[in-house]
Simulated scan of single mutants.
Amino acid sequence: MTKIIIAADSFKGSATSLEVADYLAEGIQTVDAQAEVVKVPVADGGEGTVASILTAVGGQRMTADVTGPSGQPLQAHWGLLANHVAVLEVAEGAGITQVAGQLDPLKTTSYGVGQVIEAALDAGARTIYVGLGGSATTDGGAGLAQALGAHFYDAQGAEVVHQGAGVERIVRVDCQQMDSRLSQAKIIGLTDVTNPLTGSEGAAAVFGPQKGATPAVVQQLDAGLQHLNTLVSQQTGTDFSQQPGAGAAGGIGFGLLAFLGGQLQPGIQEILRLTQLSDKLATADLVISGEGQIDGQSLMGKAPIGITKLAKAQGKPVILIAGSLGADLAAVYEAGADLVLSSTVSPMSVAEAISQTRKLLKQAGMTAMRAFLLGHNPGNNGSEAKA
C-alpha cells in the first residue's frame, strides 16, 4: 500500500489547508483507491496556524473576548497545548478580514492581539507563539503593548489612542506597568517575511497598501514607525527596527521585540517542529505540499519549501502543487522538489479558478499520483488500481 502525506498550506481565498488536502486526496484515491493518505494541515505563521498545530498534535481550542482592529468586540480563537504552550494568530485579534467598514490603517489597532496574549497568560502559558500574518494594522505593536499595560503619552501628557494614526503623536513610552508575567514567559513571533520596520522594504511601504493605505498614508505611517523606533532606541539603547521580521504584521514583530522582550523565528521551521512532521514523514512513500502560488519567492520561508527540505532529508520524493506557477521555478527544483504542478491547466480568470477549486485540485491530485506511479512502475499508468 502506498502511503502519501499531504502537508499543504492554504490556497488563500480558495481553500483552507485541510480542504486542499481533502481535494487532493480525492484525486489520488481516484487513481489508487488503496492508497493511504495522511493529511497534515500546515501554515507558516499566518492564518490557519492555530488550526494546523491543534490538528497535528492536539490541544484545547480556546477563545478570548477582545477589541477588534476597528474597535469592535469580537471573539479570537487560540490554542493551548501541553507543557504550558500557547499558539495564537495576529489574524484572530487584529485581522484584515475583521475590519468593520473600509480598510484604513490609520484607524486600526493591534490591541486585540495583546488581549489574546493576556488570555494565554491567564491560562498558565509560559511559551507563547504569535503567528504574524494577515494583520489589518500598522501600529508597530503599540496597541498590543497598551493592552498588556504599557502607556504611550502625547505632548500634553494624555494617553495616545491605540490606532495607527496615534503612533506619530507619542512622545513618551512607559513600560513599567506591563503585565509582570511577561518577564517569566517566552514570546516567539512566527513570520515568513524578513522585512525591517521602516523604509522602502518596511511595514508601511510594503504591506500598507494592502491595508488601504494611499501613498500619503504610507509616508505618514512610516514616519510614525520611525518616530516610535527612535523613542524606543533612546530608552533601551537597542535599535530593533532592522531585525529581520520587525516589519511583519504591521510592525507587530517590532512590538514583540521592543515591548515584550520577545524573539522572532522563521514561522515554517517552528511550526514543522511543533507539528512533529518529521516523525510523520518517516513512513511516507510520497510527500505532497503546495500553496496558492509557487515561484522563486517561495524560497523565502514559505511552507512548501520548508516541507520539501524536511522530506528530502529523509530521501522522500516531493511533488508541489500550486494554483499558479511564477518565475524562477528552477530555484524551487534546486531546493529539492521533484515535480511542480499547477492546478490551473487552461486559461481562466482568478474568479473562475476559485469557483472550481475542488475540481482543479482533484485533477491535480490525479496527475500527481499518476506521475508518482509512472516513476515507480513504468508501464503502469494507474489503470490497474481500483477506483
Rank of each mutant, 00 (worst) to 15 (best):
R181W: 04
G189Q: 09
A216C: 00
Q220T: 14
G199F: 09
F152N: 10
T238D: 02
A216K: 13
G166Y: 00
G140K: 11
G157N: 03
G208E: 11
G224W: 10
D174N: 08
V167T: 07
R172L: 14
F152P: 08
A155T: 15
T138Q: 06
F240Y: 14
R181P: 12
A203R: 13
S183M: 13
T214M: 10
R169S: 15
S180D: 14
L231H: 11
C175T: 14
G133A: 06
G245L: 00
Q163N: 10
A125S: 09
T137E: 09
G149N: 12
P196A: 13
V173C: 11
A205H: 08
I188L: 13
I187S: 02
P244F: 00
A223N: 13
E159F: 06
D239Y: 05
L228Q: 13
S233A: 14
V167P: 04
L132Q: 02
V130L: 06
A203K: 10
Q235H: 05
G141I: 08
A213N: 05
G124E: 08
Y129L: 06
E201T: 03
G143K: 11
D192T: 01
L148K: 11
L231G: 12
G245W: 00
T191Q: 05
G140H: 11
G208T: 01
H162C: 06
T191C: 04
G141F: 05
G224D: 11
F240A: 07
R172A: 12
A136L: 04
G124P: 03
V161W: 02
S183P: 09
T198A: 13
Q226S: 12
P215F: 06
T137S: 15
L148P: 03
G157P: 00
V206H: 12
G245D: 06
V161D: 12
G202N: 13
D192M: 01
Q220V: 09
F152L: 13
I128D: 02
G134Y: 00
G143P: 14
M178Y: 08
V161R: 14
D174K: 00
Q163C: 12
P196L: 11
G133F: 00
A142D: 08
Q234T: 13
E168K: 14
T194R: 15
G199E: 09
L132P: 03
D222K: 01
E201L: 15
S233Q: 15
G237V: 07
G164M: 04
F240Q: 01
H151W: 05
D154H: 08
V193C: 02
L190V: 09
A142P: 01
F207C: 07
Q177F: 06
V232F: 06
G143F: 08
G237Y: 01
E159L: 15
T194Q: 14
D154C: 04
L182C: 07
M178A: 10
R169D: 11
Q210F: 08
G131Y: 04
T137W: 03
P244S: 03
V193A: 08
C175Y: 06
S241R: 05
P244E: 09
Q243M: 07
S233P: 07
A185T: 15
G199C: 08
V167G: 08
T137G: 03
A147C: 12
T127F: 00
Q234N: 15
Q177W: 02
L148F: 12
V232Y: 03
S135L: 02
T238E: 04
K211N: 07
A165W: 01
K211P: 01
A145K: 14
A223E: 15
